[in-house]
Structures are given as C-alpha cells and as structure tokens.
C-alpha cells in the first residue's frame, strides 16, 4: 500500500513559503549557476541532523498523556526529596498515643493540627504519608534498577553471544520465571533471617530480572540479524563495539519502556508483600505499601487508614504507567516520520 507519508516540504506556512522562494531562486539562476539546481542526489538542507531520540522527544513534548504522567512522576520525586521539610510532624513520634484506646478508640480521628488523624500508634497520618513517599520511591527505583542491571547483564550475554551461552542463560531465566514471585520473596526473607526494606527490594528486583533479560535478548537477537549489524561486521568493526555501539543501544528502547512500567509494579508489589506481612517490620520509617499492610487490621472500622496510602500508590503507579506507554508509542519505529 502506498505510504501516506507526510509531505516532505510540509511544515508551517511560513517555512514552506521560504522553501518555495529559495527553490524558485535556485531555479531562476539555473543557467548561470548550475550547482544551485537540484543535485542529482536531491537536495539536503544545511541544518544539523535531528537524532531519533531528539525527534521522539519533540513528539513527546506535545503528547498530553506523557505530560500528565511526567507531571505526576516529577511531583512525586520532588515530594520524596522535600517530604521531611514539609511534614508537619515527626512521622515516627506517637504524638496522639494518649488518645489511643485499644478497645474503644484504636485510631485517633482528625483534629486540629492533624487533618487526617493518627494511626494505631498515635503517629500523624499526614506526615507519614508525606514522608512515606521517600521510601516508596526507594523501593520502586531500586527494585527496578536491580532488575534492570541483572536483566541487562543476562540479556546482553545471551543476545551478544548466542549459541550455547544463549541457551544456558535462557534456561536459567526460565527456571527463575517458573518460581512464583511470592515464593521467591518468602525465600529471600527467610535467607535474610529478618525481613527489611532491602529484602523487599531484592525480592522484587529478582522477580524482574528474567522479564528484563528475555525482553532484551529478544530485541538483541532482532538487532543481531539486522542489516546494519551485518554492515558493521562486513566493515570489519570489532565484535565488542558491534555489541555495545550497535546492538545494545538499538535494543534498549523496549527495555527502557518496560523499566518505566516496572517502577509502578514494583511499588504495587512492595505493597502486596507488606500486606502479606513480608514487608519491612520496622515501621518507624513509613512506606506506603507497609502502611497499607498495617491498615488491614482496622479495615472494617477505619477504611481511611488503607484508602490514603492506596490512593497515593494508585496515582503514582498511574503516573509511571502513562509515561511508559507514551514512551513506547514515541519510540515505536512505525510512528517515526
């Protein structure tokens, strides 16, 4: 089918006019200045080139979905940085502990100075939510980074060498994939003797490793068989530069998109682990997933205790997902000009 590609001289009216004028001038001078006519190869303008990343960024800047996602993510990161400064109270101090009555009033309600009330230990809920963003960001980012590093290593090994190394790595990855993620988390918590924030991160990271590895290997293999890698081989480029300059960078697109999406799932997974009691037992430093997990005891009487951290998680996860999806669209070769 005919490629309805954008008109090459399209662009906004003014720019087009300029083009026509310059072409017309070139045409008028044709006889005395033959080098200004359309060369046999066609015209090439003098502007510096725009790389694919740059042109993807130009498209992204206009994309409403991406802007919405990016706004949420940026706000979240800023909040995580400044939370201790803006939090009205110390999130670990039981300021409302005096109001907590195990039988009649386990959760202190909203009151002046404490707009969302306190938790079961009498700590200010708002301050804990605000400061909790920091730990949540840690979990999301470090779990993703861990998964990414592991996945990149395995995927590059498999995709770059192929053959029996590929088979071996992929069998290992398959075994990892076949273990349920919760079981994996249980095991890691057990090995670590005592669950902590880092066991949560490690558990989630290890679960992500095979996903990243498979993804990268698949796209590395596609690159391996692409003409431009064949061209580099034919040119006599050494094997290492072929892998690291040609195959890996071109294979990274889907992995970067996946990483953005994984930040969201990592935050949700951390919440799930906490909910099942596999999270960080030390609740002096708040984290949204852990707060959600702690709220389950009081879910019937005091649902707001679960609602606030859950809402925060949903909004942040949505932010990362929106960003990831629009990145995927922007990097899709089919949507390229």
């Amino acid at each position: 089918m005919n490629d309805p590609r954008p008109h090459p001289r399209g662009g906004l009216g003014a720019r087009k006019k300029e083009r026509i004028d310059s072409l017309a001038r070139a045409g008028a001078r044709r006889d005395d200045a033959p080098d200004t006519e359309v060369a046999s190869a066609g015209t090439v303008d003098d502007r510096a080139g725009v790389s694919l990343v740059a042109s993807a960024w130009r498209r992204l800047r206009r994309n409403v979905v991406f802007l919405a996602g990016a706004t949420i993510v940026v706000l979240f990161v800023i909040l995580a940085l400044v939370a201790p400064l803006v939090a009205p109270h110390d999130p670990s101090a039981g300021l409302l502990l005096s109001q907590v009555r195990q039988q009649t009033n386990p959760i202190p309600g909203p009151q002046p100075g404490f707009p969302l009330g306190g938790d079961q230990a009498g700590r200010d809920l708002l301050s804990r939510l605000l400061v909790g963003s920091r730990q949540t960001l840690y979990v999301g980012v470090f779990a993703t980074l861990g998964g990414l590093i592991g996945g990149l290593t395995l995927g590059t090994l498999a995709g770059a060498f192929g053959g029996w190394i590929d088979s071996l790595v992929m069998r290992v990855v398959d075994v990892m994939l076949s273990i349920p993620s919760l079981l994996m988390a249980f095991s890691i918590a057990a090995i670590a003797a005592r669950p902590s924030q880092w066991t949560v991160i490690l558990a989630i990271a290890i679960v992500q490793v095979p996903i990243f590895a498979r993804l990268l290997r698949g796209s590395m293999l596609a690159q391996r068989h692409s003409d431009h890698v064949l061209a580099a081989r034919a040119l006599g480029v050494k094997p290492a530069p072929i892998v690291f300059r040609h195959m890996l960078p071109n294979a990274l697109g889907p992995v970067i998109v996946q990483a953005t999406l994984v930040v969201a799932t990592a935050i949700i997974d951390a919440a799930a682990l906490s909910f099942l009691g596999l999270g960080n037992p030390d609740d002096r430093v708040p984290e949204w997933g852990q707060m959600l997990g702690a709220a389950q005891t009081y879910l019937a009487g005091y649902p707001h205790l679960a609602f606030y951290p859950a809402a925060c998680i949903i909004v942040v996860a949505l932010g990362f997902t929106l960003m990831g999806e629009s990145l995927r669209e922007a990097l899709d070769p089919k949507s390229r000009r």
């Binding site: 990343v53 003409d227 431009h228 064949l230």
Partner: peptide, 27 residues
C-alpha cells in the same frame, strides 16, 4: 565491502553519517 538492498535498515539509526563513515575507517 557490501552494499545492501534496504538502504535504511543497513544504516544504524543512532549514528550520524559522519560517525558511520568514520567507524569503518577507524576499525
């Protein structure tokens, strides 16, 4: 050397023309 059928597919989309010409020369 070799010339390929698909002119776009045989050029690394991330390289400028200068760097893809220099690559073989430096190799």
């Amino acid at each position: 050397q070799m010339i390929f059928q698909d002119p776009l597919g045989s050029l690394d989309p991330r390289q400028t023309i200068e760097s893809l010409l220099l690559e073989g020369m430096s190799a």
